[in-house]
Write a protein that binds this DNA or RNA. Structure first.
Length: 115
DNA sequence: CATTTGACTGCGT
DNA sequence: AACGCAGCCAAAT
């Protein structure tokens, strides 16, 4: 009905980011850089941008920084979810990436580039 | 189209 | 361990 197809709310790239996050199982995490790498392009910063736009529509607490920490305003809420999901974390409160990092070998992307 | 911003990362001090 | 700096890239202005 429109003379031309209206552009989606989010770009295809942002949608892909959210798709990856949606695949992360409870109790596991990925780093922002991991998500970007799985997509084959983009950067950790772009991932953070997309997640900020998505808000609570995704399990954002399953994506953490490279050091296992999170953005300060999100830290408290993430701690609750991590405790509920049993996410391995260090005494410092940061996620223990050595144990919590998700093995995305079985990830099913809508359009993943050849590895 | 140019500039600024930001839920990032790695390295040096 | 804390801090600063440069590189990075997509979205917003």
């Amino acid at each position: 009905m429109s003379p031309r197809p209206g552009p989606p709310r989010a770009s295809a790239w942002e949608d892909a980011v959210l798709a990856v996050v949606a695949q992360v199982p409870p109790g596991r995490v990925l780093t922002y850089g991991d998500v970007a790498e799985l997509l084959g392009h983009g950067s950790a910063r772009g991932v953070g941008q997309s997640m900020a736009r998505a808000g609570d529509e995704v399990c954002w607490w399953r994506v953490v920084r490279a050091d296992g920490g999170l953005h300060e305003p999100l830290r408290a809420r993430a701690a609750v979810e991590h405790g509920r999901e049993g996410t391995p974390r260090r005494p410092d409160g940061r996620v223990d990436l050595g144990r919590a990092r998700w093995d995305a070998a079985g990830l099913d992307l809508p359009s993943a580039p050849p590895g």
